[in-house]
Design a protein around this nucleic acid. Structure first.
Length: 269
DNA sequence: AACAGCACCTGTAGGC
DNA sequence: TGCCTACAGGTGCTGT
């Protein structure tokens, strides 16, 4: 499940290879991987040069040349991968293939078919509903201090309109590091803990980027390598294990139909 | 405004 | 072994 650090790693791996390449052909094997469900939506990319590879929230952004300039976003959702080379088990799950004029390829592989590729119209605002990037402690802290909603803080952190790029893994980890129970209403979190959370989120994401992300099941870098951050997780996926801070047993509860992992001693409402 | 439920998908893990 | 069910989860939609 790629979240911000994983998508950042993927974009950083794609950029040096893809920039400067011109698309020769695109083959779509699963139409619904293309936003709108029509394979022909990608036809406008043929003959265009990739100028830039970036990231916004959990989206990879390709900027292509020509006139007008063209922008493409790719969301990997749960099982999406962008690969230069296919691993042994990837072949049956190739949904879209990009062929470049220099003879190289890029594969969009996606077991569960949730991932989406979207071409944006030239005058269309791109990804208008995303909140700010959570990589700057000042921005995140100020945003957290303004929260007055009664919604559970875990739900708020997963809301991409509030902050763009945090998913289930890093939400759980950030709340544990800050000593905040995931069900705490956002407006009930004391000032000091909001400031702490505001520092912890960018720090945690920054460290995960350095570790090239967290591989749980399907995430891989474009070189088909795994992330190294999993060994640093304190609560996510560790139900029944012991808390690294106090030794209590990590618990798992369901919030909004998603699992939340937390330490009942360190994180009290 | 908040939230619950569902749809999209398929591999994997568990029970019997 | 083989069948069945539950589960994983990001986003977007509908209904309450």
């Amino acid at each position: 499940m790629p979240e911000l650090p994983e998508v950042q790693t993927i974009a950083a791996g794609l950029a040096p290879v893809l920039v400067g390449k011109t698309i020769r052909e695109i083959r779509v094997h699963w139409h619904r991987s293309v936003e709108g469900g029509s394979a022909s939506a990608l036809d406008c990319l043929i003959g265009k040069e990739i100028l830039q590879v970036g990231r916004r929230g959990k989206y990879i952004i390709l900027s292509l040349g020509g006139s007008p300039l063209c922008r493409v976003t790719i969301h990997l959702r749960m099982t999406g991968k962008l690969l230069f080379r296919l691993g042994e088990k990837d072949a049956p799950y190739v949904r879209v293939e990009f062929f470049f004029q220099d003879g190289s390829y890029l594969y969009f592989v996606d077991i569960r078919k949730f991932g989406r590729i979207k071409v944006w119209k030239p005058d269309e605002p791109m990804l208008p509903c995303l909140g700010p990037e959570p990589l700057d402690a000042k921005i995140v802290t100020e945003l957290l201090l303004r929260l007055e909603t009664p919604r559970a803080i875990k739900t708020v952190l997963l809301d991409q309109r509030v902050l763009a790029g945090i998913g289930n893994i890093y939400a759980d980890e950030a709340l544990h590091l800050s000593g905040i129970h995931p069900l705490t209403p956002a407006r009930a979190i004391p000032h000091s803990k909001r400031c702490l959370l505001g520092r912890v989120i960018p720090e945690l994401l920054g460290e995960a980027i350095l570790h090239k992300g967290t591989t749980f099941s399907d995430y891989a870098t474009p070189d088909n390598r795994q992330g190294e951050h999993r060994q640093f997780l304190h609560v996510y996926g560790r139900e029944g294990g012991s808390c690294v801070k106090c030794g209590s047993v990590i618990e798992r509860i369901c919030i909004n139909n998603r699992s939340s992992h937390y330490c009942p001693a360190c994180q009290q409402i």
